[in-house]
Design a binder for these strands. Sequence first.
DNA 1: TATGAATGAGACTTCATTCAT
DNA 2: TATGAATGAAGTCTCATTCAT
Lengths: 211, 211, 211, 211
Amino acid sequence: MLAGMSRRPLTTPRKHASQERSRATVDALVEATARLLVREGFDKASTNRIAQEAGVSVGSLYQYYPSKEALVAAVIDRHNGELMQVVRAALVEVASLPIEKALRRLVATAIDAHRVDPKLHRVLAEQIPRTGRLEKIATFNREYFVLFRDFLESHRGELRAVDLELATFVCVTSIEALTHTAVLHRSEMLSDERAATLVDEATRLMVRYLR
Amino acid sequence: MLAGMSRRPLTTPRKHASQERSRATVDALVEATARLLVREGFDKASTNRIAQEAGVSVGSLYQYYPSKEALVAAVIDRHNGELMQVVRAALVEVASLPIEKALRRLVATAIDAHRVDPKLHRVLAEQIPRTGRLEKIATFNREYFVLFRDFLESHRGELRAVDLELATFVCVTSIEALTHTAVLHRSEMLSDERAATLVDEATRLMVRYLR
Amino acid sequence: MLAGMSRRPLTTPRKHASQERSRATVDALVEATARLLVREGFDKASTNRIAQEAGVSVGSLYQYYPSKEALVAAVIDRHNGELMQVVRAALVEVASLPIEKALRRLVATAIDAHRVDPKLHRVLAEQIPRTGRLEKIATFNREYFVLFRDFLESHRGELRAVDLELATFVCVTSIEALTHTAVLHRSEMLSDERAATLVDEATRLMVRYLR
Amino acid sequence: MLAGMSRRPLTTPRKHASQERSRATVDALVEATARLLVREGFDKASTNRIAQEAGVSVGSLYQYYPSKEALVAAVIDRHNGELMQVVRAALVEVASLPIEKALRRLVATAIDAHRVDPKLHRVLAEQIPRTGRLEKIATFNREYFVLFRDFLESHRGELRAVDLELATFVCVTSIEALTHTAVLHRSEMLSDERAATLVDEATRLMVRYLR
DNA sequence: TATGAATGAGACTTCATTCAT
DNA sequence: TATGAATGAAGTCTCATTCAT
């Protein structure tokens, strides 16, 4: 569907690094990649530089990852994992709350999630499309989507009549955009005094729309 | 704010191409860049290939643009210009309508704007961060922002008490995200039957939030 | 048919180098490749080294040849061309001679042909299989084969009853092997005094076989 | 004689593998090398892959062979040994036959010898020059040469007056070339019906030449 | 002795950019 | 001013070989 996207480099790890020594190498590589991505951006993060930053030889890098893309993919996966953990926990916690309280909590959580490692988040958000991780992102989003849909379903009683699918799309997309933009491009909005207001507004947006 | 971004290549055109012939060359170059960006992606769109596609020598390319980035920047500017034209027209047209009708119209326009050249839009959206065009985008957004704020201001009477700045942020960000996502990742939502529903929902989201 | 031979690198030149300057570059590259092949062998003749030897940048090398293999292929083609010229000339010259005189002359010519650039010939003979030039070699051999067959045909009267195809195979293969081996591995056989003896023997081999 | 061939890697095995376990490892390595050479070609047959194919660690590989070349050399030696066994047996068997019968038998045997493992034979024939095994090959050929010379000597009575040295060169080279080419490049000549004809012709070539 | 993780020189190749014509 | 040949830094990746465990 995307033009010119044939022959994308492999993005799956090569070995699963059973021994302890290798495990350390793999971790160092992913960590180094994340660091360089933040510090220098995708283009400047060459495999040689990554290996160097990880204190490892290029050869070792290629022992575990077949390409730079695979390494970035690993960083993405790790980051997504962390985000989803936060999100999942929040959704569980919130399941039994009345919808307004619940949504407020979810918005706040979304902001927190974006704060996990905002610089990394930004680079990844920019680079994801180039890494063949669209699917994984889709996966990520789909999981969020499904969980949120379940959440709405279990609060059916408090909602107006609405196509849940559509409502989920509207809410998830809006929350994501608002929190993402606020964290990455409008950090002044998240000062101690003003953060609450933003949460208020986002919550109001959702609540009024859904009720 | 972005780390390690010093020494960014120049991104302003070299001459202003007053003569007719030059004008044609410049146009051909920008057009060729856009075409290749869509067809091959940023990385594969080399300056040599762009020159070839434009039917011009590389030498000439560098006569008019000091770098590849400058060329991409030109494409971005052109694209943004087209978008803003659509948006501006809509805002003018809508100025005197009651808020619900107005918002419905604006949402529909946002979708149309994204449809101007969706594939190009997607590539640009992905590449913008790498081109130092963040500022220009900010500029773009700021103009939209200001216009929308004015729009809200002139409909003050129909709104609840609300910080206009904040409301603008919420609305602009949400509309942008909903239309962008729908067009780029959920094209099935824009089939003839379903498009109206999406517009309905987005409108409802805004209206309920603002009133 | 050969195992593991999929995805062979391209072996056709990239441009045809019309301008004089490029022509010189291309020539220098082929020449340098031949030189290095002789001096260092295939494996040590890296593209960077070839470019250096040619007094040209690697970039230029890749402007004209898509791979090292293509360069070697060019050398092979050039060498084959030279050989065939010698061989063709001899066959024409010999057409009307009685078969013994003719064969003697052809054997002597084959030795001469191998002497054109024996070291290069050796390296190429060794490297040909790896270059996807088997076809070209086949072509080369086929031309020789056809010419020799015609030669036999036109001397039909002097031959015993024999399958011409088969006789051609036997003669061409033997002459080639004898001259190749003598030149490359038994140069002592080609000293002034002994060369004539070798030609005698080879001629006798053919004549007795054919008559 | 070959230029630039100094500093060739070691090509002799490291230990003589007295113990049984070692013997098995060594065998597995040589066997694996032969298999990979056939399946993937010389370049793709990396030492790591060979070790893996042999079910042994790279470390162990280097315990027994000091270099990749040494491994290939071992394969060549093994292959040559097998060939020589066939050839030696034939020469013994043939010693007392009249020359025509004997030569027919030797030609047939040469074809058989090439059929022992034609794919391996081809790869080795191509790779030998790169392995410093030229000497060994020379050795191989020299043994064949000497045996054949002895054969001719013992049939002196049936021959015309001829320099035995030279006659041996002519015969050995021609037979080798004819059988090698037929097996590797003209397999259609060895179909059940046609093989006999080829043997006939080759025999005739020799007999007429020698008598 | 065996293992296999680690090494790192070096191979191939691309492409933004320059410059002689 | 236009051309396109030339440049060469830099990037990705492989693989023979070593060495700590």
